[in-house]
Design a protein around this nucleic acid. Structure first.
Lengths: 173, 173
DNA sequence: AGGGTGTAGTTCAAATTCGAACAACTAGAA
DNA sequence: TTCTAGTTGTTCGAATTTGAACTACACCCT
């Protein structure tokens, strides 16, 4: 790990602009959602995923993976959304352990009511700023990055505690 | 606000990929930093900004604006970094109210020690995935977006002061 | 069947973030 | 000078997020 390939000027420009833009955008999105609907971005993402899912329902673990949040984080948010009547919990028919998060009709209405303002912000600060070529590039770039990270090992999304690890023998061996 | 301009298929692709990639990347970055140095990404960003600043010091409010975090959030993190001996607080000579966050020598060493691993992650999951054209596009896209959001009103993070000297940049971004 | 291993979701404590309220200070006008 | 408005950084409480520990269930192999 001695000699590092530092970032070139352009690479640094790209990275720093990305980091800053991402923070600013998250703030704008959060601000708009909170003001117009009382939802957080995390909650909106959950509702959106559910609404795009067959039967408007999804298993907890898969949903957590989709929105890229920890299992406990999702448990919390689904709890909040349940309180609001936007989501319901159902035990999974095929797996007694499983829980299905189901978008309620109220949830659908909330989403329909909220989406326009959300889209407007995404457009105003990102999408509408881009040329068609840049839009394509962005889709390509981000898809590639997401694919690589999804494929690469070390998914911090709940690394199962590997017990028998380092090949060391225990007293039981 | 009646008829919404919904996102086209490509626009939606770009946006969704962006959101997902951003979450995944944040996780990877956070994971690496925590493992290799015990720092959070927020803390790393603060150290990096300070190190690229003249005299390695910055006013709290300006620093908060630069790293795009709330004033109270910065107060908290500077407190943490102070405990770790990586940053010190100094009262601003020219303004009795002001506080200067100053990167200590220990802070510099910590950053130098941590930067290689951080850059490696940024490269592996984002930068090195891009063609030169895509890299350019990304820099352009994100700079544009950041500029628009910085300029637009409604900043929850106040934006009075004009930016002074061209804070020099290091490769630690 | 009986065990052992792995998975699904929840609970818990700890860390972090934000906004509002606040105290201290600055700056401009009268 | 003195008043007034605006700025600066901190404190406080509430909300959110995470990883680890835990319970309940599923699946496989003999």
């Amino acid at each position: 790990m001695k000699d590092t390939r530092w970032l070139s000027e352009t690479e640094l420009d790209a990275w720093m602009a990305y980091v800053t833009a991402t923070h600013l955008l998250e703030r704008r999105v959060e601000e708009q959602l909170k003001a117009d609907s009382g939802l957080t971005h995390a909650q909106y993402e959950i509702l959106a995923k559910l609404s795009a899912s067959p039967e408007r329902r999804m298993r907890m673990t898969e949903l957590a993976r989709e929105v890229v949040v920890s299992k406990s984080g999702l448990t919390y948010q689904i709890g909040q959304l349940e309180k609001l009547g936007l989501v319901e919990r159902t035990t999974c028919p095929s797996d007694e352990r499983g829980v299905l998060a189901v978008l309620t009709d109220e949830g659908v209405r909330c989403l329909e009511r909220t989406a326009p303002g959300h889209v407007a912000v995404v457009r105003a600060f990102l999408i509408d700023q881009l040329t068609p070529e840049e839009l394509q590039a962005m889709a390509r770039i981000m898809s590639k990055a997401a694919a690589v990270m999804t494929a690469a090992p070390g998914h911090s999304i709940e690394a199962p505690a590997r017990r028998r690890g380092t090949g060391r023998r225990t007293a039981l061996g």
